[in-house]
């Protein structure tokens, strides 16, 4: 194919995409203008109905808790698939590898970052229904806290803290607890995942009903899932760098 033909083909398809984009953008509501009724309704109803301040988490864990269950199982499936695929390096092959962190600056910085992210993560999870954030965001921040710890201590010791034999059950427990909470509601004669606890006083950490438990379950599932993913990637790396048996 000559250069002219290729350029013509690219030009035609780019012009087509540009026209479609312009058509789509032209029909968008004007910038900053929200047309739908649902957002306004939720903002109005969330405090009297659910005793929560953060409408976003109220939607995620209460009004559409079922969708969130799908998102959570999706992450669970992704982490499981990754753990299944990255089976090239086995645990016993990286067992004897010693990789001390030689720089004091990295060790100190890693430890500091780990502590700060741990506190932020716990805050974000606990204040899900009051301030922005929630189980998903907090879960990733908590996972990041343990990932930062990797900078501070040797791989060997980190592997003991964030071992997949600990993180896989944490993830599975979180994902399972979410579904179990839905079944508990079902067993008590309510709809699947419907609130079955006292809603509590508006503005307290303890208010929000059983959505609090859903929030905690998803925090566990997300933190565990990300650590399984990170741990598996890391194990592969260490194995590859030191030329483990299967890689040789």
């Amino acid at each position: 194919m000559s250069r002219t033909v290729r350029l013509t083909m690219v030009g035609v398809s780019l012009a087509g995409f540009a026209a479609l984009l312009a058509w789509g953008v032209a029909d968008l509501p004007s910038f900053g203008h929200y047309p739908g009724p649902y957002g306004d309704l939720i903002v109005k109803l969330v405090q009297p109905q659910r005793h929560m301040a953060n409408a976003v988490t109220a939607v995620v864990f209460d009004y559409r808790g079922f969708d969130t269950m799908g998102e959570e199982l999706l992450l669970f499936a992704a982490a499981s698939a990754l753990a299944l695929l990255l089976r090239e390096t086995r645990e016993d092959e990286v067992e004897d590898i010693r990789e001390p962190v030689l720089s004091d600056a990295i060790r100190g910085g890693g430890l500091l970052a780990s502590i700060v992210t741990l506190v932020v993560g716990l805050y974000v999870v606990a204040h899900a229904f009051i301030t922005p954030g929630g189980g998903f965001q907090g879960g990733v921040v908590l996972a990041a806290s343990l990932a930062f710890l990797f900078l501070a201590i040797e791989y060997q010791r980190w592997g003991k803290v964030a071992h997949s034999s600990i993180m896989e059950p944490v993830e599975a427990f979180g994902a399972g607890a979410y579904v179990a909470l839905g079944l508990i509601a079902l067993a008590s004669g309510l709809a699947f995942l419907e609130n079955f606890m006292e809603l509590g006083v508006f503005g307290r950490l303890s208010s929000g009903g059983s959505a609090i438990l859903l929030n905690l379950a998803s925090a566990l599932a997300v933190a565990g899932g990300f650590l399984v993913i990170f741990g598996e990637c890391l194990q592969e790396n260490v194995g590859a760098r030191h030329g483990s048996r299967t890689n040789r």
């Binding site: 974000v124 922005p132 954030g133 965001q137 990733v140 996972a143 990041a144 990932a147 990300f226 993913i229």
Partner: peptide, 11 residues
């Protein structure tokens, strides 16, 4: 923003 920070900044 928090989700994006956690996912695109860290994970």
């Amino acid at each position: 923003a928090l989700s994006a920070l956690a996912v695109s900044g860290i994970a």
